[in-house]
Amino acid sequence: MSRSAQEGALIAVGGDQVRLMTRVARMYHEQGKRQSEISDELHISQPRVSRLLKRAVEVGIVRTSVFVPPGIYTELEEALEERYGLEQAVVVDADGAHEDVTPAIGAALADYLSATMTGGDSVGISSWASTLLAGFGALKPFRAPVADHVVQLVGGIGNPRVQMQASRIIGLFQAATGAEPILLPTPAVLGSREAGAALLGDPAVADAVNAWESLTLALVGIGAIEPSGLALESGNAFPDADRQRLEAKGAVGDICFRFFDAEGSLIDSDFDGRVIGVDPRVLKAVPRRVGAAGGLKKVPAIRGALLGGWINVLVTDRAVAEALL
């Protein structure tokens, strides 16, 4: 409220009323007195005290200010939500240019899940995301089960040593939330479309495929066109020839090995038909789709995921948030 507008409002109220309003406001906000105490001391009714306090806000006698603590970036979060139509953005203080942002993003993801999972969710998880591994490692167990199922969204059979890490992602989430795990016992990428189609129809994977249709929450990493270290070690990274063909078609990143271009459109390729994982249309129908990723190298991939509607909640670092804006 401008100064002239406030002066006009106070004149309209009247001097005696303004004096009483100011007295009540000081007693309540500065002296910490309850409304019932103010009522007794000033010999006015408690409903009138309540009305005076409300009016004191309306005419500018009482003004509310919010102190934003260091390391909290609500303005950035709100700007991301408005720019990309997100349900929620979570921005953490990490240097996306010079540091490994994974631990900070993982901790922020754990905080977000602790605050927003209240029970009854059926959760899909991409099993090769290092941010999810960090997040679930930081997730404290809930007192009661908050998820019915946790479902693997993309195949995960590869190098046995790193396969243990993929299984650990599911296990950590299950242990914290009480969810019943539904695994996808297949490789992430097969050699041909025909093999992929046949395996998706196999009874051994039917439980996971059917469960995808009823997910209420998806938790995914966002990959750049260059495969992550975890994927390289696992044996699930695809050959350079595949990557080059995807790049030639404009691919900038992936979610669950589904590659998309800078605008978020799915890349139509032979590779896509060889992936054993959730169909993009099924994934985008999940009500809450949380993407956790950071580091400036991933900005094109994260922007594509946002523009394409692959996710509607983003957990990222400050440098990436600024670059996206």
Rank of each mutant, 00 (worst) to 15 (best):
R3G: 00
Q6S: 02
E7P: 00
A12Y: 02
V13G: 06
V18F: 06
R19H: 12
L20P: 06
T22A: 14
R23K: 04
Q31D: 08
K33M: 14
E37Y: 10
D40Q: 12
H43M: 11
S45V: 07
Q46C: 05
V49H: 11
V49S: 07
L52W: 13
L52E: 10
A56Y: 02
A56T: 01
A56G: 04
G60H: 03
I61E: 10
R63C: 13
V68F: 12
E75F: 11
E75Y: 12
L76V: 11
A79P: 04
Y84I: 11
E87G: 08
D93M: 07
A94D: 05
G96Y: 01
E99Y: 15
D100E: 10
T102N: 13
T102K: 14
A104Y: 13
I105P: 05
A107M: 08
A110K: 15
L113Q: 06
L113C: 09
L113D: 08
S114C: 14
T116G: 10
G119D: 15
G120R: 03
V123N: 14
A134F: 06
P141V: 11
V146D: 02
D148Y: 02
V150I: 11
I157D: 14
N159I: 06
S167V: 10
Q174D: 06
Q174F: 06
Q174W: 05
A176H: 09
T177P: 01
T177V: 01
G178W: 04
G178R: 06
P181Q: 07
I182Y: 03
P185R: 11
P187Y: 09
A188F: 02
L190C: 10
L190W: 07
R193M: 10
V205C: 10
A208L: 10
V209Y: 06
N210Y: 04
L219R: 07
E226W: 01
S228Y: 05
G229F: 03
L230W: 03
S234T: 08
N236H: 09
A241L: 14
R243E: 07
Q244W: 02
K249G: 03
A251H: 00
A251D: 00
G253C: 00
D254M: 00
D254K: 00
F257Y: 01
R258W: 04
D261F: 01
A262L: 05
E263N: 09
L266I: 12
I267W: 03
I267P: 02
D268Q: 14
F271H: 12
D279N: 13
L283M: 08
A285F: 04
V286D: 01
R288H: 07
G291S: 09
G291T: 11
G294M: 14
G295T: 06
G295E: 05
L296N: 08
A301Q: 01
L306P: 02
L307P: 03
W310T: 03
I311L: 09
V315T: 08
D317F: 08
R318N: 13
A319W: 02
A321H: 06
E322K: 13
L325G: 10
